[in-house]
Computed example of a mutant assay.
Amino acid sequence: MHSAPHDGVRRDRLRHVYWIGGGSGSGKSTIARRIAGRCGMRLYDTDAVMGDHARRMPAEQAPYLGEFAAMDMDERWVARSPREMLDTFHWFHGEGFDLIVEDLLALPADRPVIAEGFRLLPDLVRPLLTDVSHAVWLLPTPAFRQAVFDDRGGPAWGFIARTGHPEHALQNLLQRDALFTDRLTEQTRRLGLHELRVDSTITEEELARQVSMVFGLEN
């Protein structure tokens, strides 16, 4: 999961990439679209390729994905504790991250790229940075995450609604994601990377401005 022999080569080839990681529901996609549209950048959405990456990964390289795929919805989101959900979630272990890097290396380098998504873990991105100002992690407060899910429909939203106990599943998911944000906070601080706290007091425009300032795209 850490530095590989070819990190120096990959780092040089990815110097035009800007990275936005962070907790789920922190506004990464919205902010990335705003900045990419304003600055004429190419956008790479890691969420959009999760299905493709899951299909491409050999089983021996994705043990946690295999375990997750074998579970039913209640086993995934109801029966386990938030801590167990955190510690066994395949994307949080970096499974498939090399495929993200492959995709980015395959893109034309004729203009800057913004890569965004919760799969961009600080420990994995740091060895690929020529400049730490090219990466930022958005860290949502628990109250902000709760508000996001309330806006989406709460227990009636998406895969949560397909469990046998949507209310419990939602609380498990919110607690797991809070633990994930705590983990991201620890990693970004340990590695000297940029982080921005996201709460209900900040507007999308202001958050986009702050991310742009980290990236050096605004004075």
Rank of each mutant, 00 (worst) to 15 (best):
Leu43Thr: 00
Tyr64Thr: 11
Ile160Trp: 06
Asp123Met: 13
Val101Thr: 09
Ser24Trp: 07
Met41Arg: 02
Ala70Tyr: 01
Ile202Leu: 07
Ile100Lys: 13
Ser212Tyr: 02
Ala36Lys: 03
Ser81Val: 00
Leu129Pro: 05
Leu193Pro: 07
Phe97Pro: 15
Gly40Ser: 11
Gly154Val: 06
His2Phe: 11
Arg13Gln: 13
Val198Ala: 11
Leu128Ile: 04
Val49Met: 10
Ser200Arg: 11
Leu120Trp: 04
Leu104Val: 05
Arg145Pro: 00
Pro127Thr: 13
Thr185Leu: 08
Ala147Arg: 09
Pro58His: 06
Ala178His: 01
Phe159Gly: 05
Thr185Lys: 05
Phe144Cys: 05
His2Thr: 09
Leu104Gln: 08
Met85Ile: 02
Met57Glu: 09
Gln210Phe: 03
Gly66Lys: 01
Arg197Cys: 15
His2Ile: 12
Thr88Met: 10
Arg176Glu: 04
Glu186Asn: 06
Asp150Gly: 00
Asp199Cys: 15
Gln175His: 05
Glu206Ile: 00
Ala36His: 02
Ala48Gln: 04
His165Asp: 15
Phe180Asn: 09
Ala36Gln: 03
Arg209Val: 10
Val9Asp: 10
Arg176His: 01
Ile114Gln: 01
Met213Trp: 07
Arg80Cys: 03
Asp131Cys: 07
Arg83Met: 12
Trp157Ala: 12
Arg42Ser: 15
Asp110Arg: 10
Asp98Val: 06
Val148Thr: 15
Leu43Ser: 00
Trp91Ile: 14
Arg38Ile: 12
Glu67Tyr: 11
Asn219Asp: 12
Gly96Arg: 10
Gly8Leu: 13
Ser133Arg: 14
His165Ala: 15
Gly8Thr: 12
Gln61Arg: 15
Leu120Val: 06
Thr88Gly: 09
Glu195Pro: 04
Arg34Asp: 14
Ser29Phe: 07
Ala69Thr: 07
Arg56Met: 12
Ala69Cys: 02
Leu65Asp: 06
Ala48Ile: 01
Phe97Asp: 15
Gln171Thr: 12
Ala161Pro: 10
Phe159Tyr: 10
Phe144Lys: 04
Leu138Phe: 06
Arg83Phe: 03
Gly96Gln: 10
Phe97Ile: 11
Met41Asp: 05
Pro58Trp: 09
Asp182Leu: 05
Gly192Arg: 11
Leu128Ala: 01
Met85Ser: 05
Thr46Phe: 03
Asp74Pro: 11
